[in-house]
Design a protein around this nucleic acid. Structure first.
Lengths: 139, 139
DNA sequence: ATCCATGCAAATTCTTTGCATCGCG
DNA sequence: CGCGATGCAAAGAATTTGCATGGAT
C-alpha cells in the first residue's frame, strides 16, 4: 500500500484528508515496527506540530476500522502497525525481543475463509511466541 | 495443557500455587475466547471470592511470561486467552465480531523457525482481519 | 517460621469525551 | 460556506505500585 492509495481509501470512505491524518499515516509507513499511541504522538508531532493526543487515538482507531492499520499486543497495551497484507513476527516472551519474518502462508487460506464465512478479508497476523536463545538459559 | 501441567509449570519456575492463581488459571481454561482483565476478575471472583484486581493483573502477566497465557488485541485493550499451541481467529474490524477457527497450518513452520533462529517456540497466533457480511453493507 | 503472594487504596498512566474553533472539500 | 476534524482540558478507565497482612511451602 502506497501513501497515495491510503489517501484514496480515506476519501472513498467519506473522510477528509487532514494534516493530522497524513502525519500518522506517513509515520506508520516509515516505522520499523509496532508503536504504542504515545510514541506515535511523539513522532507524528515532528510532521505535524501541535498535534493533539486525542487526535492520535481517534486517527488510529479510524485507520484500524478502515483496515489501514492494525493493533497488536505489546508492552503496556496495544501497539499499532501499518496494515500490510500480513504481519509476521517472532516474539520472545522473556525479553520482548522481536523478529520480523518474511514468510507468508496464509494467502490461500484467506480465500477459503472469505468463501466459507462471507468475510471480506483485509489482512492477517501470524505471530510465533517462545523464548530466544538467551532467555532459554535463564529459565 | 491440562490444569495439572499448568500447576507443575508454575512450581518448576519457582512460584507458589495459590487460590488466586488457581482461579485465574481455571477460568481461562473454561473461557470460550479471549477476555479483558476486568472480565477475568469478575468471573474469577466466583471461584475465589475477595480476589483483588491487582492480583489479576499480576497473575495475567505472570502467566504470559511463563507461556501459559497469551495477550491478543481486543476492544478496549489487551484480552487474554489460555495459551494453547495455537490461537486462530477471524475478527471483524467493523463490529468486533469474532469467530474461532479450527484450522492449523503453523506446525511445520514453527519447527523451521526454531531451527533457524534458535527460539524455543511455545505457541502462535494466527488472526484474519476483515469485514463480516453485515459490516460490508455499511461500508 | 520464612518469604512470597495478596488485598487494598493511592498513584500513575492510558483512553475517551465535550466543546469551541479551524479548515478541507 | 458547511460540516467534519482538531486541540485542549477534563472526565473516566485501566493499570501499576507501596505496604501491612495472610498463607503456601
Amino acid at each position: 500500500l502506497s501513501d497515495v492509495s491510503w489517501e484514496q481509501r480515506l476519501r472513498e470512505a467519506g473522510y477528509r484528508l487532514t494534516p493530522a491524518r497524513r502525519a500518522v499515516l506517513a509515520l506508520l509507513s516509515r516505522a520499523e515496527g509496532p508503536l504504542p499511541p504515545g510514541e506515535v504522538l511523539r513522532r507524528a508531532r515532528a510532521l505535524c506540530p501541535g498535534l493533539g493526543r486525542a487526535t492520535v487515538y481517534r486517527t488510529l482507531s479510524l485507520l484500524v476500522r478502515l483496515g489501514l492499520a492494525r493493533a497488536v499486543p505489546g508492552p503496556g497495551g496495544l501497539h499499532y502497525v501499518r496494515a500490510e497484507e500480513g504481519v509476521h513476527r517472532l516474539v520472545c516472551q522473556g525479553c520482548g525481543a522481536e523478529l520480523v519474518l518474511e514468510l507468508c502462508l496464509a494467502g490461500g487460506l484467506a480465500e477459503e475463509l472469505a468463501r466459507r464465512y462471507g468475510f471480506s478479508i483485509r489482512g492477517h497476523v501470524l505471530e510465533f511466541y517462545g523464548l530466544c536463545p538467551d532467555c532459554q538459559k535463564g529459565e
